[in-house]
Simulated scan of single mutants.
Amino acid sequence: MSASSPLSSDHQASLIDGKGFAASLRAQIRDDVRTFHDQYGVTPGLAVILVGNDPASEVYVRNKAIQTHHAGMRSFMHMLPETTSETELLALIERLNNDPEIHGILVQLPLPKGLDARRVTNAIRPEKDVDGLGETNAGRLAIGLPGLVPCTPLGCLLLLKDQLGDMHGQHAVVIGASNLVGKPLALLLLAEGCTVSIAHIHTRDTAALARQADILVVATGVRELVRGDWIKPGATVIDVGITRVTLENGKTRLVGDVVFNEAVKVAGRITPVPGGVGPMTIACLLKNTLTAARLLVTGKPE
């Protein structure tokens, strides 16, 4: 069936199993970490810095530590009080930059008020910037040079390549132009040979643009923004959004930026929420940490 063919009334899109793919990727990384240690006697080390006591961030940071250990890497946690000054935070980053046991540094965002996220992110040595958010790595991505790529866009790309293989000539529409997801993913898709359009808050008819997409990525943080009639029949849909909503019975559930029950009747493939893009983010953080260790030890990413 071509992407433009009409779909039957009982059509259901194939679900893209991000949870399963991430588990396979973590297993491969664990094997690669063991091989790397056997070759060079080095265990990759990841330092994660959390400033303040945001409950969601605390859970996320602890999950990162658990997965880091499971991958055979060393985890270094730095839990700082909300009163930490920017000078103190920058001093910690400088110590980690100079620590040979640390190959990756991640500062959990958002930071408390009064701390300059851009300045803090750029203080991380580019070779250790496993979040890929510093200006050096962002610039390398923009001009097509190898570097460390933000984890969520990298996860989206790996899922797309697994599902679609060669993407040359496909029209990819990315809804959302953040530095964290939308912009870097658009550049990654461009490098794969896609024709790329980016929709943002000033786009005049986002729905019309979305209907042209062979690949539709939605990363806005606006829950259930994209309806089923925004989607080209047979398109591949990557839903990056995740929002917890409270139901009438008082229970909660997670929803994405796409109205899943509508989209699944039109798309060819779609990521569910949860279980789609989410698990890929931490898996790609581990992948980036191993890449950083290789760069620091051998001068090569592979």
Rank of each mutant, 00 (worst) to 15 (best):
Asp214Trp: 09
Asp214Met: 02
Ile215Met: 03
Ile215Asn: 04
Ile215Arg: 09
Ile215Trp: 06
Leu216Met: 02
Val217Ala: 03
Val218Cys: 03
Val218Ala: 01
Val218Asn: 01
Ala219Cys: 13
Thr220Asn: 01
Thr220Val: 15
Thr220Met: 00
Gly221Tyr: 06
Gly221Trp: 07
Val222Gln: 14
Val222Glu: 08
Arg223Ser: 14
Glu224Gln: 15
Glu224Arg: 14
Leu225Glu: 05
Leu225Val: 00
Leu225Asn: 04
Leu225Asp: 00
Val226Leu: 12
Val226Gly: 07
Val226Met: 11
Arg227Asn: 10
Asp229Gln: 13
Asp229Thr: 15
Asp229His: 15
Ile231Cys: 01
Lys232Ile: 05
Lys232His: 06
Gly234Asp: 03
Gly234Met: 06
Ala235His: 11
Thr236Trp: 13
Val237His: 05
Val237Glu: 01
Ile238Leu: 12
Ile238Ala: 06
Ile238Lys: 06
Ile238Gln: 04
Asp239Phe: 04
Asp239Asn: 09
Asp239Gln: 09
Asp239Cys: 07
Val240Thr: 04
Val240His: 02
Val240Tyr: 02
Gly241Trp: 00
Gly241His: 04
Ile242Pro: 09
Ile242Met: 13
Ile242Arg: 15
Thr243Val: 05
Thr243Tyr: 01
Arg244Phe: 06
Val245His: 08
Val245Ile: 15
Thr246Trp: 12
Thr246Phe: 12
Leu247Thr: 14
Glu248Ala: 11
Asn249Thr: 13
Asn249Cys: 07
Asn249His: 10
Asn249Glu: 06
Gly250Pro: 15
Gly250Gln: 05
Lys251Met: 05
Thr252Ser: 13
Thr252Val: 10
Thr252Met: 04
Thr252Ala: 08
Arg253Ser: 09
Arg253Met: 11
Leu254Glu: 08
Val255Gln: 00
Asp257Cys: 01
Asp257Gln: 01
Asp257Leu: 00
Asp257Asn: 01
Asp257Ile: 00
Val258Asn: 03
Val258Gly: 02
Val259Cys: 11
Phe260Asp: 00
Asn261Asp: 14
Asn261Val: 08
Asn261Pro: 01
Glu262Met: 03
Ala263Gln: 02
Val264Trp: 03
Val264His: 09
Lys265Gln: 11
Val266Leu: 03
Ala267Ser: 08
Gly268Ile: 07
Gly268Gln: 03
Arg269Pro: 13
Arg269Ala: 06
Ile270Cys: 04
Ile270Phe: 12
Thr271Met: 02
Pro272Lys: 14
Gly275Val: 07
Gly275Ile: 04
Gly276Ile: 12
Gly276Cys: 03
Val277Gln: 08
Met280Gln: 13
Met280Lys: 13
Ile282Asn: 10
Ala283Leu: 12
Cys284Lys: 13
Leu285Thr: 14
Leu285Trp: 02
Leu286Arg: 00
Leu286Ile: 13
Lys287Phe: 12
Lys287Trp: 11
Lys287Pro: 14
Asn288Leu: 01
Asn288Lys: 07
Thr289Glu: 01
Thr289Cys: 10
Leu290His: 10
Leu290Lys: 05
Thr291Ile: 12
Ala292Asp: 04
Ala292Phe: 12
